[in-house]
Write a protein that binds this DNA or RNA. Structure first.
Length: 686
DNA sequence: GGGAATGCGTTTTTT
DNA sequence: ACGCATTCCC
């Protein structure tokens, strides 16, 4: 198409009337309620292109999205629609925007520009240190654990409720601990400030503070970003909504896009009420509703609408489509987990024979571990796949260890990093790590403290001495000519860390591979600070499962529903639709949580363009280990009115020769050579 | 007796 | 991978 090479945009041709209205709207506040697959991204892309085409400087447009990848993708598309100018539009997540802005204005909120960022587990470690310092770990009465404590602090910040309220509503059994928790919260804040570290919530809190309390800065930023666009607005929290509003306080040019029915992040304080309340903050808001789906067939939408019909609280909207196809979603019963995996393997191979590439198929689940046995079967059948969601590359213990060294080189006051690094040594546990950390802090970050009195005679004295040397080498002034590049620093850390790694893990070889990957990633960076903040805020995507190198471009997606947000595939499989897996048993007895499970299923179903398979294993290994209780069909499905008519029901059992011990070569059984063909293709290529 | 190492059971989602 | 409990070591 010619429009890809610039020369103006054809809104008439490329957009429907509702989309066009949103794209062409004038200045002011705008709310776009966009159903699944209704061209929400397209609308944002064209809006950006339209603004730039109309003469707006690209640098004065700010696009806030849920992941950095989403922003990059949109801006890439905008450059195709218009021209290269769109690549200069500012984009990223709220957190990365906060990071960039605070680096410039850190002093205004009592930090200095070199601050380091604590991810969730670092923050937990720090809370854990404070918790035991205060003696809460050795008390008679039960005291909340570090991750519960952090949940409380985080919810207070992100929802605006008070600690007292939160305890009462969500943790009544800890209601007596209000005082100590408040105290702990104060200490946590003070400690972070002293160490010049920020956690995820702080990035937002201090950005808001900066905007709210510093008029000059607010004006300058508001003048810099003359148009602010926010994607996935249903998954923003109060704090983020406040930040967006403050950012545009000078002009009111704010466009937010979202779908209340797809709000799936309330566990971290998000509220789709932000959508409902938006027009209250900005009277005169233009509201647009996008209801036509360009993604899914009508039978899939019928089911999706059916799921939503049960929802308690929503904007009403009803999706329709002109997409061709009348195949109803399949509701597939299998005897167990294993059969479920076999069904998927068989179906995936079958679809591929029909010409659907692996990259157009996805298997979605409620929780990352639900796909464990499937992954084994995919491996047996030689189906390349990539897994998204669950534990990430940079969250793996060995990667965290290496980045902790780098953090110390940048910021020797980072207690959480010390705590982690010190425990790598033989003879150092939580208690000793805490003492050494405290000694360094008292010395104001002077590494000489490592070789001072009490520790100099312990058996780990040599380790501390070497640690000091390594850290000093890393901290060498970056402006010097012979300073190490970022990847050289990573290499230096890895070389030092390797023996420690080998002592700690029996699968050290695999982990060393990850560290090599980390080194490659580091090559792209010119400063350790940047490298570290990206690791915390925009974790690089590294496939966690082996994909045969010759099929890099073609792999099946295995993902949590959360990580599938915003994406779509020709064929989608949803795993484990049983009472307790999807919905998660954790959501039982909590109406709001249960409603979120419903929206989650809605998101899963609306990822599908042509085929949707809902799987129900009738028997799953039970959680305790003993016995194998029958798994009831997910109430999320049985509650749907007319469910039986909305789906095609089928039962699948692997044939006898397809049993658990069957060799992969015989996996497709007699009478079928489809699987064989697929494997021949795999092996020889086309 | 304090603290480190070891083993066991459980596992929602993520910036 | 983590918390938790038990065992082991200095």
């Amino acid at each position: 198409m010619s429009f890809e090479h610039g020369g103006g945009i054809d809104l008439e041709r490329d957009l429907n009337p509702a989309q066009r209205a949103a794209v062409e709207a004038g200045d002011g506040a705008q709310l776009v309620i966009a159903g699944a697959g209704s061209g929400k991204t397209r609308t944002l892309v064209y809006r950006v292109a339209h603004l730039v085409a109309g003469g707006e400087a690209p640098e004065s447009i700010l696009l806030l999205t849920f992941t950095r990848k989403a922003a990059q993708e949109m801006l890439r598309r905008a450059t195709q629609v218009l021209d290269e100018r769109c690549a200069r539009v500012a984009g990223g997540t709220f957190h990365s925007f906060a990071n960039r802005t605070l680096r410039r204005y850190a002093e205004r909120v009592g930090f200095s520009a070199g601050f380091t960022i604590l991810d969730r587990s670092d923050a937990e470690d720090l809370v854990g240190i404070l918790r035991s310092e205060a003696g809460f770990d050795r008390r008679e009465r039960r005291f909340p654990r570090k991750n519960t404590i952090l949940d409380l602090f985080s919810k207070r910040i992100n929802t605006g409720r008070s600690l007292e309220q939160l305890l009462e509503e969500d943790y009544p059994h800890f209601a007596d601990e209000l005082r100590p928790l408040e105290e702990l919260e104060g200490q946590y804040a003070a400690r972070k400030r002293r160490q010049n570290v920020l956690d995820y919530d702080d990035l937002l809190v201090f950005l808001r503070q900066l905007l709210r309390d510093h008029e000059g800065v607010r004006r300058r930023l508001s003048a810099t970003y003359r148009h602010v666009l926010v994607d996935e607005y249903q998954d923003t929290n109060k704090l983020q909504a406040h930040i967006a509003a403050l950012l545009v306080s000078g002009h009111g040019n704010l466009m937010v896009v979202g779908d209340d029915a797809q709000s799936i992040y309330s566990f971290r304080g998000a509220s789709f009420r932000n959508m409902l309340d938006f027009p209250k903050i900005f009277p005169g808001t233009t509201v647009t509703v996008l209801e036509q789906s360009y993604r899914s067939t009508q039978p899939i939408l019928d089911l999706a609408n059916g799921i939503l019909a049960q929802a308690k609280d929503k904007y009403s909207k009803s999706l329709f489509t002109e997409v061709e196809g009348n195949e109803k979603p399949h509701f597939v019963r299998t005897p167990d987990d294993f059969a479920q995996a076999r069904f998927i393997v068989r179906k995936v191979l079958e679809l591929r024979e029909e010409g659907v590439s692996l990259s157009k198929m996805a298997v979605l689940s409620r929780a990352a571990w639900h796909s464990n046995s499937l992954e084994v079967e995919l491996g047996n059948a030689n189906i390349p796949f990539r897994k998204f969601g669950g534990l990430r590359f940079v969250e793996a213990a060995h990667v965290k260890d290496v980045s902790a060294f780098l953090r110390l080189a940048v910021n020797p006051l980072d207690d959480a990093a010390w705590f982690r690094v010190l425990q790598l040594f033989e003879g150092v546990g939580p208690r000793t790590a805490r003492d050494i950390t405290a000694a360094v802090a008292t010395a104001g970050g002077d590494l000489a403290a490592l070789e001072a009195k009490p520790f100099a005679t312990r058996r780990y004295a040599q380790d501390l001495k070497r640690l000091r040397k390594v850290l000093e080498a890393l901290a060498d002034d970056a402006s010097k000519d012979d300073a190490l590049a970022v990847d050289e620093k990573v290499a230096a850390v890895v070389a030092y860390y390797r023996p420690l790694l080998r002592r700690k893990y029996d699968d050290a070889t695999r982990r060393e591979g990850d560290l090599e990957a980390l080194q490659v990633i580091a090559e792209r960076y010119r400063s350790v600070e940047r490298f570290l903040s990206d690791i915390a805020l925009d974790p690089p995507e590294v496939a966690r499962r082996d994909t045969p190198p010759d099929s890099e471009d073609e792999w099946l997606t295995v993902s949590t529903v959360h990580s599938a947000k915003g994406l779509e595939w020709h064929s989608v499989f949803v795993l484990n639709l049983t009472d307790g897996h999807f919905p998660s048993h954790r959501a039982m007895g909590d109406e709001d949580a249960y409603e979120e499970e419903r929206r989650l299923l809605y998101v899963a179903a609306t990822r599908a363009q042509q085929n949707l398979f809902l799987l129900h294993p009738e028997e799953l290994p039970s959680r305790g280990g003993w016995g194998s209780p029958l798994a009831e069909v997910s109430p999320l499905l049985t509650e749907i009115e007319g469910f039986d008519d909305l789906v095609v029901e089928e039962t699948f059992s692997p044939t006898a020769d397809e049993d658990r011990w069957a060799d992969a070569d015989e996996a497709d059984g007699p009478g079928s050579d489809r699987g064989l063909l697929a494997r021949i293709d795999d092996y020889f290529g086309h």
